[in-house]
Design a protein around this nucleic acid. Sequence first.
RNA 1: GUGGGUGUAGCUCAGUCGGUAGAGCACUGGAUUGUGGCUUCAGAUGUCGCGGGUUCAAGCCCCGUCACUCACCCCA
Length: 421
Amino acid sequence: MSIAGIKGMNDILPEDVATWQFVETTARSVFGAFGFNEIRVPVVEKTELFCRSIGETTDIVEKEMYTFTDRSDNSLTLRPEGTAPVMRSLIQHKLINQNPVQKLYYSGPMFRYERPQKGRYRQFHQIGAEVVGIDSPLIDAQILVMLDHFFKQVGISDVALQINSLGCPQCRPGYRDALIAFLDQRLASLCSDCQRRFRQNPLRALDCKVPGCKEATEEAPIVLDHLCAGCDDHFSAVRTHLQNLEVSFSINPRMVRGLDYYTKTTFEMITNSLGSQNAVAAGGRYDGLIQKLGGPDLPGIGFAMGVERLVLLLSELKLTNAQIDLFIAALGTEAQQHGFKLLSFLQRSGVRAEMDYTDKSLKSQMRRADKLGARYSLIIGEDELTKRSAPLRNMSGGEQIDVDIDNFEGVLSTVAPAETL
RNA sequence: GUGGGUGUAGCUCAGUCGGUAGAGCACUGGAUUGUGGCUUCAGAUGUCGCGGGUUCAAGCCCCGUCACUCACCCCA
């Protein structure tokens, strides 16, 4: 019995890697242009970090974390998200003292013990960005402009930006009470899930998919009507900036975020071509989080994108791995040895070169050259060895020229793509 | 954690009433002493997920189990 991988933890095979790299390099260049620097943090943290940041009563902390004790009896957890570790690092290294504005991005695997389904895995990858130290709505808008731009750069148009405001510690409790009072009146018409969580997380009822709940909450009070003056001004400034920059968005007052630390602006990039896991990027402001984690009282805002979901949206793109420059078809041991010398020289010179390491027929070697997408092929047999000259074939047109098989530099200069010279 | 669907060749899948395993693609070789793509001919390929049961006989029926997958829940 061979050993299989772990449920929900997928291999990313060579044929898919080009798409992943495309997403990653696009994110790097876009985030870089917006002034973000990469930070790399461990995938394991003390369990406490996530309990304090994400919230004790969230599903993530209650039942989805990969938590274990190490040999020293510390409780450790495989990170289920990236913001908390980045904030921990920022506090620990007092980065804010070096620069009062921190713009950071990260990329890497996250872990949640959930039942896998389309777009949802136990090990999944996020690329996220965070800004710490600025409470201006300009930054909220900048994050959204960057997100919008990233999707355009990567070529995904089947997404819609939704925004909302969750208020702050001044105005949210009042809204929460109003909502609970409202739901309490119609408890009977809510689904069992909503009944169960209605005291702990009443907001959930607002985006419940059960028709009965949708109906019952149609007239429910809306956060946006309960915002304090500060939050209201902030939210309208964000909207104005987005309009000025021609970023299209819609307001979804029923949008709920899964992590406790969000305040004020929250947002999601939604698609309808991914099945039920429709959020491809999401985030929001988290003004109290850093202080809660033992740092200074600094505002923050950020988001994370699900890389698997991005790749799924790009799957029809069918990017391929780089094609090779030259395939050397050698016939016979002696030719193979000479070919191998030339091959190694070219590879060391940075040219993508390949050959057949077994002694197959020329036909099959040419087939392989074609399959690898070689730009050129060089055919070395017995005649060529005695003449010290071999046909170099242009695989797209089919025309051939004879080249000196001892003049490695000469082969290199005709075969190398322009950019490597 | 709950529910549905699917497990047969490397891949996508067919397999009738239970009668000893098939196609396309891919692969290998030939047609072209030594030239890829297009065409054509030939060839190789199986723990029918696994374990048990019924039967003269099981890919097919029954029981169990595992894996994958979609959905609920939740979320990126």
